[in-house]
């Protein structure tokens, strides 16, 4: 059965001018019959960092491919800054830079040449100073005369970003930018993305590292089996779906939770030494004060306590889990 057209929550309202990308009713069914995208509606705000979350095969790359021109949509339309991505592809594509997921490079080209090539391909006149700036930004200037084949994986990744930025795009797509990238380089990448945003570049990244979305994104979209499940401010999402946990470490183990203290959200574990209390951080009364008072009345001494909130990853798993296939 077909899902209802607007089963997912509508994106928060904002003016047409604020949407730098607008996707309406986008569908993609491949020749094999596999449907990768189902009635996708999505609006990306100008200047934001948007993280598209989804498991492998959820439709992330197909969605990016459709916006950038690599995939032919089966239905629907895509507007890039008001320009139709198919009918008015020249203007639309000039505004977009794409960093692919795989390290697709011309092994025998020189670093500087390949960046200059990208700039020309996207219709911009030669500008050695600009290319130099991009290479310096990405710490590749020292390697400008090197053959690409001689670069490390991390350098190749940065080179692909340099190529995508060579034509001064307003919108940058990063498809799994830190897949298989070591921790330090990942941090570098995050810093670079923030720098770009400060310059006004809209950034859309796909990832299945939740940590990455949590670290970087202003808004998060979750895609699952070709459908957008939700689009939400990251902080709002975490507030809305985030559960907090209070963990109490007891001085002396107890056999059972006393009647006066017991409540549904409270559980005993750790051989009677820890109490875990789940509460809603947004509610007026979290129930913590009452819990602590009753524990004291019952003569249960607390040695230590800690609270934690659920990560985006837990939110994501709870969203995706239990969805019909």
């Amino acid at each position: 059965m077909r899902p209802a057209a607007h089963a997912h929550p509508a994106p928060p309202p904002f003016g047409a001018d604020d949407a730098v990308i607008r996707v309406e009713g986008l569908e993609k069914t491949y020749a094999s019959g596999f449907t990768a995208l189902r009635n996708v509606d999505l609006a990306i705000r100008r200047g934001e960092i948007f993280a598209l979350l989804g498991e492998n095969g959820a439709g992330k790359s197909t969605l990016i491919g459709a916006i950038c021109g690599l995939v032919r949509p089966s239905a629907g339309r895509i507007l890039v800054d008001g320009h139709d991505a198919v009918a008015d592809y020249r203007v639309a594509r000039t505004k977009i830079g794409l960093v692919p997921q795989e390290l697709h490079v011309d092994s025998f080209e020189r670093v500087m040449d390949t960046v200059a090539f990208s700039r020309g391909l996207f219709g911009k006149p030669r500008d050695a100073a600009f290319v130099e700036g991009v290479l310096r930004d990405l710490s590749l200037w020292d390697k400008r005369d090197a053959k690409i084949i001689a670069l490390s994986g991390g350098m190749k990744r940065r080179l692909l970003i340099a190529k995508a930025l060579a034509h001064e795009p307003d919108i940058l797509f990063l498809d799994e930018p830190t897949a298989g990238v070591d921790v330090e380089l990942r941090r570098d990448m995050w810093r670079m993305v923030h720098r770009l945003r400060e310059r006004g570049v809209t950034i859309i990244l796909t990832t299945h590292y939740i940590e990455e979305a949590e670290e970087m994104a202003d808004r998060v979209g979750v895609i699952h089996k070709g459908e957008i499940l939700l689009v939400e401010e990251k902080t709002a999402l975490m507030r809305k779906l985030g559960r907090r946990e209070l963990v109490l470490h007891l001085r002396e183990p107890i056999a059972a939770i006393p009647e006066a203290v017991a409540r549904p959200a409270l559980s005993l574990d750790g051989e009677g030494r820890t109490l875990t209390y789940v509460f809603d951080s947004q509610s007026e009364d979290t129930g913590i004060a009452d819990l602590l008072r009753r524990l004291a009345e019952a003569g249960i001494e607390v040695r230590d306590l800690a609270t934690s909130e659920s990560s985006l990853e837990e939110i994501f798993v709870s969203l995706v889990k239990g969805r019909p296939s």
Partner: peptide, 17 residues
Amino acid sequence: LPKFQGTIYELLSAPVS
């Protein structure tokens, strides 16, 4: 060659007819 290397993505996403 670009098809084989995967670098064709750039040509396909570029504003060239």
